[in-house]
Simulated scan of single mutants.
Amino acid sequence: MPLNLDIVIETVDYEVDMKAGLETLQGASEATLSIVETLVTGKVALRHRGVSSVRTILKRTFKGSYGQVFAVEISDEELQREYKKIGNTTFVELMSYFMKESLYLESADLSAKAQKIVDNLGDSAEALIKKLRVSSMENLHKVSTKFDHDVKIRYRKSLNEKVVIASFNKSTVLALQATESDKSTDITASITRLNINTGNGRLLLEGADETVAFGFGIEYKEVRLEAKKKFSENLDHNNGIDSSKWKNLKIIARPIKLRDGKIVKYIVTGFYND
């Protein structure tokens, strides 16, 4: 292929607590494997076995902040062909997307090729995001939660060019403790992103500066056509015009909140007609 990555733990000295460091490396490996396996097979694996056709391989460490190079190895020829169709550039784009989505963070707009891959995954895309939240992201944050070290995963595009895929710290880990409210609330917002296959996207609350993730509490195929059209038409209207001319929707939703009360996602349960 090859796909060479590294993980950087921001420490003052060239050292890191071994237990927390190993758990963070494990989280990076688990997350990478989950994403690769899903993209090349179209399915989310329940668990990773010790011997597999898709593996992460430890390479070398490097000085500065504590750094560890690792690579993705695919031994199965059919899966290799599937990966080549994706390519390193698009895979890195998707790796960033899924890692950020698992932490409710806004990611850059996907390229047409990457978006098509996400669309084709259908429900597997959401299943992958949920799987990443279960243990991979928790492990990846170990040195952040225990020692306040920031962590980066990078794509080693060349000897001199490193592309940051995702960054983790003691703030991003809070997303893993988010809980869904059992009460719905009324919100007024504009749709800024929508996956027409999964129903997941992002919205901008009236008067706010940052978007928030949203989704539906049921499988998107079960959502009424009227609601699907309402959301997609709002996105189409707002796309490419000045935000002062955007239209808003009045939505009924259950918020998913962090412990400090910050809302990181809304689960849509209904909407009001104009």
Score class of each variant (00 low, 15 high):
Leu46Met: 10
Leu79Phe: 00
Ala71Pro: 00
Ile57Ser: 15
Val72His: 03
Ser52Glu: 09
Gln80Val: 13
Glu73Cys: 07
Arg60Cys: 05
Gly67Val: 07
Ser52Asp: 09
Thr56Val: 15
Met95Ile: 01
Gln68Met: 07
Arg81His: 02
Leu94Asn: 01
Lys63Pro: 11
Gly50Met: 15
Glu77Thr: 08
Thr89Tyr: 07
Arg47Asp: 05
Glu93Pro: 01
Arg47Phe: 10
Tyr97Pro: 03
Ile86Phe: 10
Val92Met: 14
Leu58Tyr: 00
Asn88Arg: 01
Tyr66Trp: 02
Val54Arg: 12
Gly67Ser: 08
Val92Arg: 09
Ile74Lys: 00
Phe62Ile: 07
Val92Gly: 11
Lys84Asp: 10
Gly87Arg: 03
Val92Phe: 12
Val92Ser: 11
Glu77Ser: 12
Lys84His: 05
Phe98Glu: 07
Phe91Ser: 08
Val92Ala: 13
Leu94Glu: 04
Phe70Leu: 09
Ser52Trp: 04
Thr56Ile: 06
Leu46Gly: 10
Ala71Asn: 07
Glu77Asp: 10
Ile86Leu: 13
Thr90Trp: 08
Arg60Val: 05
Phe62Asn: 04
Lys63Gly: 13
Ala71Arg: 06
Val69Trp: 12
Glu78Leu: 10
Ser65Arg: 00
Ala71Cys: 04
Thr89Pro: 02
Glu82Val: 12
Tyr66Phe: 12
Leu58Gly: 03
Gln68Gly: 01
Glu73Ala: 12
Phe70Gly: 04
Asp76Cys: 05
Lys63Ala: 15
Leu94Arg: 02
Leu94Phe: 02
Glu73Ser: 12
